[in-house]
Computed example of a mutant assay.
Amino acid sequence: MDVLIHAVVGLHIVGIAALLGGFLTQMKAMGQGTARMTPAMLHGALTMLVTGVALVGLHQTQGDTINTIKIGVKLALLVVILGLVYVKRDEEKVESAALGTVGALTAANIFIAVLWV
């Protein structure tokens, strides 16, 4: 079971990397006003959602204690990220504020995962 959990954690990190990487590739375009939400950002956010839910389920089946407040905060941030990316995914240009919000919330999600014990 530990191997499965570690594999899902690896996939969760791949999702985070796709979301954050998609944002970082658009930073120069954001300064020029031509930024857009990339498919990698949507796929990364969806990967994070699916693997995050799977991780909670896997830990619950092992009887581990789960910090439900932390998971709830992370889920709320991810829902906002997903909403922004999904709604703006077909636009040729998105506002810098929308893209910046996605980047900031993604960074916040990472710091919550790492620093909140």
Rank of each mutant, 00 (worst) to 15 (best):
L115Y: 12
G83C: 04
V73P: 02
G52H: 00
T101L: 09
G44N: 09
L75P: 00
V85W: 03
A29I: 06
I13R: 06
G44D: 04
I16H: 13
G57H: 02
L4V: 05
G103W: 11
L78W: 06
Y86H: 14
K74T: 03
A98W: 13
L58R: 02
V117F: 11
F23V: 15
V80K: 03
I81Y: 11
A7P: 01
R36W: 05
A45F: 12
G21L: 04
V14A: 14
V114G: 15
L99N: 01
V8L: 00
K93V: 08
V87M: 06
G63M: 04
K28Y: 12
Q62M: 01
A104W: 15
L75I: 07
L19M: 09
V87D: 07
L84E: 03
L4N: 05
G10P: 06
G33E: 09
G33T: 07
M30R: 13
F23P: 02
G100T: 06
Q60A: 09
A29F: 15
V117C: 12
H6I: 10
G15W: 12
T34W: 13
V53E: 07
T25A: 15
L58C: 01
L82F: 13
T25N: 15
F111K: 10
V56M: 00
L78F: 14
M41C: 08
L20I: 03
D2M: 14
R89N: 03
L77P: 03
G33S: 12
H12V: 08
L49P: 07
L75S: 04
V8I: 05
G100A: 04
G63W: 05
V79M: 03
T25C: 15
V79H: 11
W116Q: 00
E92V: 08
G15R: 07
V94Y: 15
A107F: 14
A35M: 13
S96A: 14
F23A: 09
G83I: 10
L82C: 04
G31L: 13
V73G: 10
V94C: 15
S96M: 03
L115N: 08
A76D: 06
I5N: 07
G10V: 00
F111H: 12
G10T: 01
E95H: 15
M27A: 12
L115T: 08
G21F: 12
H12D: 06
T61G: 06
K28F: 15
D2F: 15
V85C: 01
L58S: 01
A76K: 02
M48K: 08
A40R: 05
A107L: 10
I16E: 10
